[in-house]
Nucleic acid binder design. Structure first.
Lengths: 349, 349
DNA sequence: TCGCACAATGTTAGCGCTGTCATTTTTCAG
DNA sequence: CTGAAAAATGACAGCGCTAACATTGTGCGA
């Protein structure tokens, strides 16, 4: 036989402190202190509905005196709308990501949103679990890097119904909104540039497709143009994973030139690597672009400060983040935004 | 006269969909589908308490079929313990922060915590409001950069009762746990190094105390040693705020050398600036360290890949983040952890 | 066979807010 | 001065979950 009713409460009631309960001050405490109903306090704190100036004043004073900090967890649960936005990035060390992040963050912050981030470390499976984990915080949107995700990640996102913005890349099928530029096209333009300048014995130092999807797409575009011109990349050197990118570029170029001393140009998968290559040339008195031309990708500030600014392609990274965040919050239609890129001729080609 | 009771519910009850309610599937739905009580589902999903293998299996299947994603907002509210950790950083572009962040993030993620981040942009007032905002998500801890905060920020943190870890710097008064190294001492060691190598006409290019508190502390230590040796910095050039750090370093050194052509060494407030200085020397055929010695701070990988590795001081940034995060979660006593630093002699001094 | 520790599961009261609606007070045109 | 619309405020049922407790089943030594 069940014995319903007549049971002690499941929790101990909060101790009835007065005035100084820093950790656990609730809206009800403020209401009591200001001698008003809870909903009035709620209205004042969220600037919604109409409240008389006197009451508002009294409530604000009470809240301040109690050092009240609203509990957004409770607020979110009650209102079913969260001011949380999930962000999953592949890495923080990367030179590109922080800028995109900064752009997005600026917009989100201004709109009162708080970013919840996860770092996937370029691992789609890790990304999937981060997405799941972040979704459990019921964010009102999600910012992702790139278009490559596991199937389950995709279905989780579709099922959740939250707005998703995929940043950086537009070469592929997006889930919802996509903001970025075409890496394939960037690769093409790079090849066209080098060919136009008369370079023919061109090598490649960088990531393979497996290591970096977007670098792979650039390489693909690059090769396509070469092929169209009856040319081919003479040789390539895929960067090993260990050490910094700059170091990888330096070593990579060294290895490549040992195999192919007669190269007249090298295409790097990004500016970090290219900078490493630049340092290698400096050290070995290889004249640039006389003996060897260098071409990168990203438009890093740093690579623009060398005695000879690096030839590269710059993408509007901050704008990308800003646009992505804006569209995330705006609630517009599904769309793909191509933010384009700019080829910087530089002095190394 | 009040009319209590007998009122329609304030919310519309969730539509009684079956099987495919992707967005709003709740624990109750799973319980119903698996024909068990809600608490049993909760137990299974959190691996707490004992549940028979068969029931567990049934529940997991039901959850999977319904694509159930737990609502941690509700969970947090109910359990009064959150798996959120707040992180307030001064900037993402900065080269140091991402590494510290990566270290911290790795530890937090492994423990199932989700970081909620805010970017203060080096503005203590902005930091204060970010702290307040983040506290409203009731995180179980907060990671901050540096020891300098507004009074109100400090009292908010003290009042909230959450664990606080301040990273990077240990020269000052901490709120709770502090993990970092002494910048004052780093400045001292830098000066000692340059003096020991016989440099006497030393200049400074970098941030003033106002622009970067920690750079200011390093400069202070540097000057103290100089003074103790009866020396003084010949001249200095504070970097303007615009443009990248590398560019600032290049321009700064140019300006400084125009004023003081006879300098034999320059102390930079960080490696980014020093790298800019290095590029300036390269471009103007100033031999290093023959004509001019350069010394930086941070131990950036990139500055180690130049033909002549930069003389600098390296701090264990990733370890700093890891340690900070570990202590945050560990619940140990208040303490200050000095992670130290390492002077890298390099080839520019 | 009984009784008791313990495993397995159900029941329910909140967690601290917000949204809806009810109620009371004020304002103001007619 | 009157009635109705508008402003101000209060009351309270959830939001989806967890923690505490209640309840029932199960194995096993006495």
């Amino acid at each position: 036989m069940k014995k319903t009713g007549n049971r002690k409460p499941g929790r101990k009631p909060a101790s009835a402190d007065q005035d100084n309960a820093p950790a656990g001050t609730t809206l009800a405490d403020v209401a009591r202190k200001a001698c008003v109903g809870e909903s009035t306090v709620s209205r004042v704190l969220r600037n919604r509905g109409s409240v008389s100036p006197l009451t508002r004043e009294r409530i604000l004073r009470a809240a301040a005196e109690l050092h009240y900090v609203p509990n957004r967890i409770a607020g979110t649960l009650a209102s079913m709308t969260s001011k949380l936005v999930g962000i999953v990035i592949p890495s923080v060390g990367n030179t590109v990501v922080p800028e995109v992040l900064a752009g997005a963050n600026a917009v989100l912050e201004d709109a009162g949103y708080q970013p919840v981030i996860g770092v996937s470390n370029y691992d789609p499976v890790r990304e999937e679990s981060l997405i799941e984990s972040i979704l459990s915080w019921r964010p009102s949107g999600l910012l992702l890097a790139g278009l490559e995700h596991t199937d389950r990640a995709r279905s989780l996102l579709k099922g959740s119904g939250v707005r998703v913005v995929e940043l950086i890349d537009i070469d592929g099928e997006g889930i919802d909104i996509v903001v970025g530029s075409s890496h394939r096209l960037a690769g093409r333009r790079s090849a066209e540039h080098l060919l136009a300048r008369g370079y023919r014995r061109i090598g490649y130092v960088g990531h393979g497709i497996r290591a970096d999807v977007r670098a792979g797409k650039r390489l693909e575009g690059f090769r396509a143009v070469m092929r169209e011109h009856g040319q081919a990349i003479v040789d390539h050197e895929f960067s090993s994973e260990s050490g910094s990118s700059v170091e990888a570029g330096r070593r990579g170029l060294a290895r490549l030139l040992k195999k192919q001393p007669s190269l007249d140009a090298v295409y790097f998968s990004n500016d970090d690597l290219a900078l490493g290559g630049y340092f290698h040339c400096l050290e070995n008195h290889i004249s640039i672009p006389g003996d060897l031309a260098l071409f990168g990708y990203n438009g890093l500030d740093m690579a623009h400060q060398t005695p000879q600014p690096l030839s590269t392609i710059r993408t509007p990274r901050t704008a990308m983040g800003r646009t992505g965040a804006k569209l995330l919050l705006a609630g517009g239609p599904v769309q793909v935004v191509d933010v384009g890129f700019e080829l910087i001729a530089g002095a190394t080609s």
